[in-house]
Design a protein around this nucleic acid. Structure first.
Lengths: 340, 340
DNA sequence: GCGCAATTTGCACGCGCGTGCAAGATCATT
DNA sequence: AATGATCTTGCACGCGCGTGCAAATTGCGC
C-alpha cells in the first residue's frame, strides 16, 4: 500500500530515514514506538505516519543488543510424542505473543544432554528459558544457572525443588488426591498405577501421592508400573507386556495413569490386546485432558490443568525484575467421563 | 546499572576478554569460532581454551546485527488441532537446529490476518519464514513479499502457485492417484471424499485429484464434503451430520479423507455415532501417517510424506544465496493398514 | 509578559561482532 | 640467504538502537 516510487524495495529503512522525513531526531522516532515514552502526541503522530509511508518498523535485533533485553524466551522440549505438548505450545505461544514475547522453539531430542540447547538459546540472549520437557536433570540446570547465561529458568507443568528455578505447575497432590477419591468412590479395588519417566529435577508427585493416598485409605499398596517416555505406544507395549500373562486371573480393575498420553495407550492395549472392555473390565484415568480424551473412542476421565492461568503467570514472572518465589501451584479440575 | 553490585559471575564475557587472556586480538578470537576461517591451529587452540576457562560463547545477537544474517527462521502455524503438526515441529526443529538454524515459533491463531505475525518475525530479522499452516491467503503473502521484510517465504507441505514463494510439498497428484488405485483395487464403489479448508495461496490438490481420477476410471463423480479446519472433532461432527440421516440406505462404502486428522474423526463418527464397523461397513483412508494412525484403534491406511527429505530441502534452500525454483515435489509412500 | 516547573527533544557513547583489506608471519624454492 | 607465494593476524568502521542526561520547549498562574 505504500510505494513512494523510489525503487528500493530491499533497503532496510532505519529510524534515521523516518526522522529525516518527519523532521525530528532519530531518538524521537524510536520514542514514538515506545509505549510509555515521553513524547508529545503531535510528534508521535508525525513520526508514525512518516514511518507508515516508508514502511519502517523498529529493529528488535538492534534494540536487543543495545538494551540487553530481547523479549525472547526459549521453549525447550524433549517430549514430542505426548500430544499434550501441542496444546501447551499453542497456549504458551499465543499468550506470550499477546504480551509481547516471542518464542524460540528448541528441540532437545537431538542434544546429548540439553546443555547444548541451553547454550544455544543463551547465544540468542533469551530473557528466559521455559522447560516443558522431562529429561532436565540437575546437571543441565546447574550448567545453565551456573554459567548465568540464562537469567530465568522456568519449569512449566512440573515441579522443581531447585531453588534457582521457577516452577509453574498444577498441584499434583491436590489433583491426585481428587482422582484417588474418584477411583475409590466408584468402587474400584485393584488399582495399578502407570507412571512415566522418573526425573530428579523436574518432578511429578502423582505416583507418590496416589500410592500414599491409596495405601492410607484402603490399607494396602497399589501396583505400580512405569515407562520411560510419555508415548502412547510405549504405554501400549508396557500394559500389554504386564497384563497379558495375567489375563483371566488377577487383573487390576482400574489403571490410574500419570497422564493422558499413557492412558490412551493403556486403553488401546486393554481393548485390542487383552480383548477387554473399558471401563467395564478395566477402567482407566488420565491427566491433562488432551483433545483426544474427549473423543467418543476414549471418553477419558482425566484432570484438566489451568493452562491459561499458568501461562499468564509466566508472563507476570517475565515482566518482574527480580525473581519471585520459586514455586507456583495451581488447581485444576477433574473431568469425569466414561472411562472410570 | 544493575542493582546490588555484588560479585556477579555472569559478566557477559566478550571476545575482548578472551582475546586478552589468550594474548591475541579480538578478531582472532571470533575466527576461532568460525568454521572455515583462516586461523592457525595453534591460535585456535589457545583461544578455545581461554574461552572455555572464561565461559565465553559468541553472541549471536551482535553477530546478526553486524552481518545482517541471523540464522533464524520463523515458523508460522495456525493449525494446532492437527496432530501432524507436532510431528512436523519435531522434525523441522531437529533438522534445522542440526544445520545451525534456530526457530522462532509464531502462533497465527490470535492474529487477525497473519500480517502482524509476519511483521513481528521480520522485526527479529529472520532469514526466512516457513509457513506450515493453512490460512495464508494472498493478502498475507503479498504483504510479506511486498514489504520485502522477509527475504524467503517457504510454504511447507502445501503447494503454492505464487511465484514469489518457495513451496516444498509432497506430490499430491501422485499420492492421491496411488490412493485412488488402492481404493479401486480393494473393490470400493461408493466413495465419499472428506476435504479440509479450501485456501487459495497454499493449496492441496488431493480433492481435485481424487475426483478427477475416480471420475475418469469409474465413470461417475464421487461425493465430496468438507470441513473448515483439520480438526478431528470437526470431522466427527460433519460425518455424523451428513451420514446419520442416510444410515440404512445408501451410505458410502469408503471415506477418503484429506488427512489423518479428518480420518480419525471420521472413524470415530462411523463407529460411535453410526454404530458401524471400519472397514467392514465403511472403510477410511487418511494422509500423513500420524502416530495415532498406527494405533490398534485406527490401523489407518494412509500416506506418509518424506518429512526428513523435505526438511533437508529447506536447509538447502536456506543455505543458497539466491532463490531457487519455487516448487519442490516429493514422493511419499502409501501405508496400507486395516482401515481400507 | 515573567518565572518556574513540567514536559519534550537532542545527543555522545556503547552494545558485541562482521567485513574487507593491509600488515605481518611463515614456508618452500632457488 | 633471499624472494615471492601463502597463510595468519590486526584493525577502522559500521550494524540500528538504548541509556542517561542536558538543552530546548511548553504550560501555567499571576
Amino acid at each position: 500500500m505504500d510505494e513512494d516510487g523510489s525503487a528500493r524495495p530491499q533497503t532496510a529503512v532505519t529510524a534515521d530515514d523516518v526522522a529525516r522525513r518527519a523532521g525530528v531526531s532519530r531518538w524521537t522516532v524510536n520514542r514514538a514506538f515506545k509505549k510509555d515514552a515521553s513524547i508529545s502526541a503531535r510528534s508521535r503522530e508525525k513520526v508514525l505516519s512518516a514511518a507508515a509511508e516508508l514502511g519502517y518498523v523498529p529493529d528488535l535485533l538492534a534494540a536487543s543488543l543495545a538494551s540487553s533485553r530481547s523479549r525472547l524466551v526459549a521453549l525447550l522440549i524433549d517430549d514430542f510424542a505426548n500430544p499434550h505438548k501441542l496444546v501447551m505450545l499453542e497456549r504458551l505461544t499465543r499468550i506470550l505473543q499477546h504480551a509481547g514475547w516471542d518464542t524460540l522453539l528448541v528441540n532437545m531430542l537431538s542434544e546429548d544432554d540439553g546443555r547444548d540447547a541451553l547454550m544455544n538459546a543463551s547465544q540468542r540472549r533469551v530473557d528466559a528459558a521455559i522447560l516443558i520437557g522431562i529429561q532436565f536433570d540437575d546437571k543441565v540446570l546447574a550448567a545453565a544457572l551456573g554459567a548465568r547465561r540464562v537469567r530465568k529458568l522456568i519449569i512449566f507443568a512440573r515441579s522443581s525443588q531447585n531453588a534457582e528455578t521457577i516452577s509453574i505447575a498444577v498441584d499434583d497432590v491436590a489433583a491426585m488426591t481428587e482422582i484417588t477419591s474418584h477411583v475409590i468412590d466408584r468402587g474400584y479395588a485393584r488399582p495399578m498405577f502407570l507412571a512415566g519417566p522418573q526425573t530428579y529435577s523436574a518432578h511429578l508427585l502423582r505416583k507418590e501421592t496416589f500410592v500414599a493416598q491409596w495405601t492410607a485409605r484402603v490399607g494396602r499398596a497399589p501396583e505400580v508400573i512405569s515407562v520411560e517416555t510419555y508415548d502412547p505406544a510405549r504405554a501400549f507395549d508396557r500394559v500389554h507386556q504386564v497384563l497379558a500373562p495375567r489375563n483371566g486371573r488377577g487383573l487390576p480393575d482400574v489403571l490410574v495413569c500419570e497422564n493422558d498420553a499413557l492412558a490412551i495407550g493403556a486403553i488401546d492395549a486393554v481393548r485390542h490386546k487383552l480383548g477387554l472392555r473399558v471401563p467395564e473390565d478395566i477402567a482407566v484415568t488420565g491427566f491433562d485432558d488432551v483433545p483426544l480424551a474427549s473423543s467418543p473412542n476414549y471418553r477419558l476421565t482425566t484432570y484438566r490443568q489451568p493452562l491459561t492461568a499458568m501461562a499468564n503467570r509466566i508472563v507476570e514472572i517475565l515482566n518482574e525484575d527480580r525473581e519471585p518465589g520459586n514455586h507456583c501451584d495451581f488447581l485444576g479440575q477433574i473431568v469425569s467421563r466414561d472411562s472410570a
